[in-house]
Design a protein around this nucleic acid. Sequence first.
DNA 1: TCATAATACAACCATATGGTTGCCAAATGT
DNA 2: ACATTTGGCAACCATATGGTTGTATTATGA
Lengths: 106, 106
Amino acid sequence: MIERRDVFQAIADPTRRMIIQKLSRGPQNLAGIIEDFGISRQAIAKHIKVLNECGMVSVTPKGREQVCEVQLAALDEVNDWVAESRKLWNQRFQKLEQFLEDTSSK
Amino acid sequence: MIERRDVFQAIADPTRRMIIQKLSRGPQNLAGIIEDFGISRQAIAKHIKVLNECGMVSVTPKGREQVCEVQLAALDEVNDWVAESRKLWNQRFQKLEQFLEDTSSK
DNA sequence: TCATAATACAACCATATGGTTGCCAAATGT
DNA sequence: ACATTTGGCAACCATATGGTTGTATTATGA
């Protein structure tokens, strides 16, 4: 098992995805995030830790609060990977077309 | 812990992402997929099972072989979710602009 | 000043995950 | 016919994951 703490893993958990969407509406401190979630503060804190470690959420101390801000740019990596897969898929058909062209022109 | 077997979890594992990219180049049977991966056949088979369960890979028996084909449409869900997050984020700024406009026009 | 709000830290727990090995079954090709 | 290729099944294992509770710390506000 290789060391994993990347964006893909970050968005794998539904609770973390909900946190990301909540933070997309604006920064919140931990207490603010906890609302609406039926789990403990510590559980949320752990999720924030994961999101922070992979660059999805920045955490800035402000007095006794920890202000969390989502960093959506981190999701580019996901989009890029999906785009790359689609590109490979399309290249496949282009190669097939090329082959059919070459064959029929003989 | 809620029951999870979705596309997000499917692409969370780096090995599964590699399998998806390999299959994006064309369908393969299990034996074909195993090449280049330094892990056992059973490990690959388990990954294919996960990918199949969440609709990322279709498996068609062909004689003694199991032909695996990637279903990239399943990744739409991921793109959609990312797009939704970005939309929420942009709406936030639009609201801020609206506020500034309303304030300055007074 | 002092209760309280906002978190951090640590220990613990059940289950999920990703991997292994060993053995079995069924097509395939020579 | 029969060795081989291809893959299924089951048991097992170590670690990761997502959660809990309890206790401690530190700003804040009345």
